[in-house]
Amino acid sequence: MELKMSDLRTELKQSIIEQLNLEELSIEDIDNNDSLFGDGLGLDSIDALELIVLLEKDYGIKLTDPNQGKEIFISINKMAEYIESHRTK
């Protein structure tokens, strides 16, 4: 379980870098507790929408209320926890 969770975190970092075109970042640059928005990775509102797409595409999770994202896209750790308990694929 431990290993699986940490794999998921690495996988998430990789797909966030790819999906959001964070070309100048690598997996090592992102800490599991870094905040994704604001001072952390500096993601913006369009990125938030892309993360919703990522959840649907990769994990079969459909967010219908845009406000839900605010509680999930806090950090890699928070995202991973949410995915673990809600994924359908």
Binding site: L20, I46, D47, L49, E50, V53, E56, K57
Partner: peptide, 9 residues
């Protein structure tokens, strides 16, 4: 497939 908001914008 799934529409990308980062493309649409």
């Amino acid at each position: 497939n799934i529409v990308s908001p980062a493309v649409f914008v």
